[in-house]
Design a protein around this nucleic acid. Structure first.
Lengths: 109, 109
DNA sequence: TACATTTATCGCTATATTGCTATAAACAAA
DNA sequence: TTTGTTTATAGCAATATAGCGATAAATGTA
C-alpha cells in the first residue's frame, strides 16, 4: 500500500530508517556535502550548485529539516541553512551503532 | 515525475544515496540487525521475527541484495542470507566519509 | 510419483516521491 | 508604493514503493 507499518518496529529502527531515508537521494547528499564544506552557512546558492529547479531544492531542504539534520534561520530575504551539529552527532551514533555490530569476517555464505 | 535525475550527480553521491535508500526502511534495518546478530546466516525465519508477510520480507531481501549489502546462497529448500562483509566495509567507509567532513561545532545558525 | 517446505514472483491497490511550472509570501530598496 | 530578490507552497503528472493474497518454482521426503 506504499505505507510502512512503523508500529511493528522499535523506535530506534524507525529513527534510523527515517534518517537513512532522508539521506537516500543524491540531491540531499549533495546539499549536505555543500553545507559541511562551507563552514559558513549557505542559503539558496545551492540552486546554483545543484542542477535542479529552485522549488525542487526547497522541497529537499524541507525534508532534511523535517528529520532535524539541518536547520535554517531567516536572514533578511534569504535563509541560512546549516547542519544541526547536535543532531548530526546523533545520526553518526545511530549509524555507527549499526556498523559496529559487525564482527570482522563473519561472512558465511 | 518520481524519477531521480541521477545524471546530475557524481557516482559517489549516487552510490551513497542508493545505499542510504536501501537502509531507509525499518524492516530492512531489522533484517540487517538480525543478520549481524546471528553470526550464522539466517534464512526465512526472518518472517517469524518480523511482523510482515513472507512476500514482503522477500521483497525487502531482494532490495538489500540488489545494492549488494547482503548475499544469499541456496541451502536445500531454504536460502541462507548474510551480510556481505566486503560491501559492508564499503558502506561504512562511504558514510564515514560523509560524517568525517563535519568540523566540530561549526553550527552557525 | 506425490506431498510438504521454502522462497520467489505476479498482479493488484493504496500511498509516497520526484520533478516541474506557476504563484504566493516576505522583505529590502528605490 | 512599486519593484526586485529570495524562498516556500500549491497543484499537477509520472514514477516508485509497500503491502498483500495467490501462485509458481525448487527441492527434499515419503
Amino acid at each position: 500500500m506504499g505505507l510502512t507499518k512503523t508500529e511493528n518496529f522499535t523506535s530506534e529502527q524507525n529513527d534510523l530508517a527515517a534518517l537513512a531515508k532522508a539521506l537516500g537521494h543524491p540531491a540531499r547528499i549533495a546539499i549536505i556535502q555543500q553545507l559541511l564544506k562551507s563552514n559558513t552557512c549557505i542559503c539558496g546558492d545551492l540552486v546554483n550548485e545543484i542542477a535542479l529547479a529552485q522549488p525542487t531544492i526547497s522541497r529537499h531542504l524541507k525534508e532534511l529539516k523535517s528529520v532535524g539534520i539541518i536547520k535554517g534561520t531567516i536572514e533578511g530575504t534569504s535563509v541560512n541553512y546549516c547542519i544541526d551539529g547536535q543532531k548530526w552527532r546523533v545520526v553518526q551514533a545511530l549509524f555507527n551503532g549499526l556498523f559496529d555490530t559487525y564482527v570482522l569476517d563473519q561472512d558465511c555464505c
